[in-house]
Every structure is written in structure tokens, then in C-alpha cells.
Design a binder for these strands. Structure first.
Lengths: 213, 213
DNA sequence: AACAGAATCGACGCAGCGTTGACAATAATC
DNA sequence: GATTATTGTCAACGCTGCGTCGATTCTGTT
């Protein structure tokens, strides 16, 4: 669909890569898209609307992004970069377990970037883009894995670490799915908290954390 | 979108409900759709193709189903009815726990009806159709709940049953998501077995089943 | 035979995506 | 500052695919 091997992002029309005035338009398009996606699904959102919101013509938009999907893809990538740094940052210590923190990070990210994550999930049903979403998840799972390993080193976990990866994999997708369902409908703070507790309890028990609940 | 309050299914064009020759065509359309959906996503599948496969014109198809989504919806409903009966049937006793059986049923259903389930997941990102899929899942969760209650009565589970429902909810969606990911890509039998084990272990530990692993 | 309803089809309108080619603005080079 | 290349813009076009309509044929009933 687009190049990815070379330096730059997956999404460019016929544009050269060089700093210029039009880069503002590119940003404007990304902003417009992200904004519109807050209230519509990918299918509902139209290029006409995006272009209008960004102050240009629909066809002009195709100068910057080769296709609608590429545009959406770019929005996700941009958000992803931002989110990644957030994940690393919150790896600082606290009194709770590393696993607990990993779960908190996931739920927090859904709270803050739910509109983007929602789009990621939607797009992940298209075979060409599934990998984008899966990769993002796997990055999170890697971090969770490290957190659990660290917890083990602190003697917080019993049982063998053989299955940790497989379990965390399943747990992460459980979090994704339940968060998706919660954050794409009206819900109370209490429900969020309840979900956080459920996921936490479940994960700690499953991995063999010594009881503290 | 369509009526649902009265007797019949959600999907009818302008057709009267009466047994006739054209009912065969209706079946043919459903069959054609199910067949095409084995190899395409909903978005990729075209009404032209479905109609051709069923031996009629595209516009003729609209005599039977008001829209493409309604047609797909009908396919899911038909399969769902079939699957429901299968679920009830497999509630017969065995040496394993009820929870184990519930998980086996889920994985088995993905093995057998994966192509339909995949479509359900795809369609569930459309707000109008999410409920269809959620309802199907909830039906399964209800059964799993009963199974666990029964296991408790047999003394297989310790801890309080307070959170059972919430936990099973999360566990079910974990199963859905991981099965979706596995069954929509090439995979070996071993991977299926591994998934089954992971889900099973995780669920039993989380709910407080007495250790047998 | 006559009639009603069931079923079929071709043609139409429409939304939305992506393309093209001509043109304007901006920057680079001399 | 004039020439040229690059960057950016847009209107018009073509295309696919969905859903609709009205005219027409088929089928069974009285």
C-alpha cells in the first residue's frame, strides 16, 4: 500500500520529505481526522468532512495522504508515538506490584486515548492493518512481562514462570476487549474502577501472586 | 433499521411471510453469503457477488433483504440459532469441571464456526449491530455462570462467589479476543491446544478453583 | 380466463473514494 | 529579477457499489 522500509512513516502521497509550509496542512489534516474520529467511526467519517475541517479541498488532501486508510493509519501512529513515551515514563516505582501498574497504564490509556484506541480496534479487522494494532499491544505485553519478572525477583510471585508470557498475552487482550466495550459506551467512574479491580484481581491470581486481596 | 418487535426476524425486504418457492432463494442467498464470507470480509463481499452465487440479479436480492447489513445479520442469526442448540447439548456431564466445559465449548465453536464468529466481531464495531454480538456472548456467559455455580455446589471452588459474574465476563471476552486472533490466521493444532490450556488455567486460578494443575 | 400477489430485472440516482491534468504559489538557481 | 523546479490546490472525471423504482413476467387461486 505504501512504503515503510525507508526512513519515513507509512503515509505519504506524492510528497517530498522536507520542512515546509504544507507540513502545517499535513498536521491540520491529522488534527481534523483525530477530531472527527471522536464522534464518528472510520466508515462514517468522510474525506470531504476531514478536508473541510482542515480548510482545504478533498482532492487536495490526497496530495498529503494516498488514501483514507493511510490517513487514519497516520493518526494512529502519531498517537502511538505519544503513548509509548507515556508508558515508559510511568514505569517508575510505587508501592503496588509491577503487574498492577501495567494494568493501570492500560486502563489509563483507554481513558485518555480511548477515541484513538477505538479506531485501532476498528481498523484491526482489516487484514492489512491488523499488525499495527497487534504490534502496539505486543509492546505493552513486553513491558508487562518485564514488570512481572521484576515482581518475581522481589519474591511476590510463586509457581513457575514458564507460562507467564502466554498468560500475559491473554490477560492483555482481555484488558483490551473489556476496555473497548466499556469506553465505547456511556459509563460511570464506578464502572471503570470496577473493571480495574476485576482485571487486577484476575491477573494477580492467575499468575500466582501471593494473596493480598 | 428493521422491525424486530413482531414475530419474524430482523431482516426482510418487502416480502410477505408465507411458505413458497422463493423461500429457496432466500436460503440460497444466506448460503451464498455464508460461503463468500469464508474468504472475504463483510466490506469486501459485494451484493453483486452474493446474488450471482445465488443465481439471481443483485436487485432481485433486495426483494429478500432490505440491505447488505441485514443480509449479513440474518446469516449470523441463522448460525447463532444452530450454535445455541449445540451449546445446550454439550452441557452433559463429564469428569472435568463445568468451567472447563464452558471454555471447551467456546474454543470448539470457534473451530467450527470461526468464519461466522469472525464476521460477528467485524460487525460488532458498527454501533447498530454491536448488541447482536454482545447478546450472543452474554448468553454464553450466563451458561458459564451456571456451570461455575454448579461447580461450587460440588465443592470444587473456594472463596466467595461475589465477583463470579464480573470475572466470567472478563474471561469470556478474553476467550473471544484470543480465539479471534488465533482463528483468523494460519495456525497449528498445537497452538489451539495451547490456547485452550492457557485459558483454562487462567480461568480456574482466577475463580479460585482448588488446584489440580 | 382473470386476477393478485410473488418474484425478477434493467435502469436510475447517489454517495464516496481516488485520479488526472491544468493551474497557482512558493522556493531555488542563475 | 527572471527562469525554472518544486510544492501545493482544485475542478472535473471515472469508478465501484449500495439501494430504489417501475415495468414486466411468473405462479397459483378463484
Amino acid at each position: 500500500m505504501s512504503k515503510q522500509a525507508d526512513g519515513r512513516s507509512v503515509s505519504e502521497g506524492r510528497r517530498r520529505t522536507k520542512m515546509s509550509k504544507g507540513d502545517l496542512r499535513e498536521q491540520a489534516l491529522l488534527d481534523a481526522t483525530e477530531e472527527l474520529l471522536r464522534r464518528s467511526t472510520v466508515a462514517e467519517m468522510t474525506m470531504e468532512a476531514v478536508a473541510k475541517e482542515a480548510g482545504i479541498t478533498r482532492s487536495a488532501a490526497y496530495f498529503y495522504f494516498a488514501s483514507k486508510e493511510d490517513l487514519v493509519h497516520a493518526v494512529i501512529e502519531r498517537a502511538t508515538r505519544y503513548i509509548y513515551t507515556g508508558i515508559e515514563a510511568s514505569a517508575k516505582a510505587s508501592d503496588s506490584t509491577g503487574l498492577q501498574r501495567a494494568i493501570d497504564v492500560q486502563v489509563d490509556n483507554w481513558r485518555r486515548h480511548g477515541h484513538i484506541f477505538r479506531v485501532g480496534v476498528e481498523l484491526s479487522t482489516r487484514s492489512q492493518y491488523r499488525q499495527v494494532w497487534v504490534s502496539l499491544m505486543e509492546h505493552g505485553i513486553d513491558l508487562a512481562c518485564q514488570a512481572v519478572a521484576h515482581d518475581r525477583a522481589r519474591g511476590l510471585v510463586h509457581g513457575d514462570p514458564e507460562q507467564d508470557r502466554a498468560q500475559l498475552d491473554a490477560i492483555a487482550w482481555m484488558g483490551e476487549r473489556t476496555c473497548y466495550l466499556l469506553f465505547t459506551r456511556d459509563h460511570s467512574d464506578a464502572e471503570e474502577e470496577q473493571l480495574r479491580i476485576t482485571l487486577s484481581t484476575l491477573a494477580h491470581r492467575a499468575l500466582g501472586y501471593i494473596a493480598t486481596d
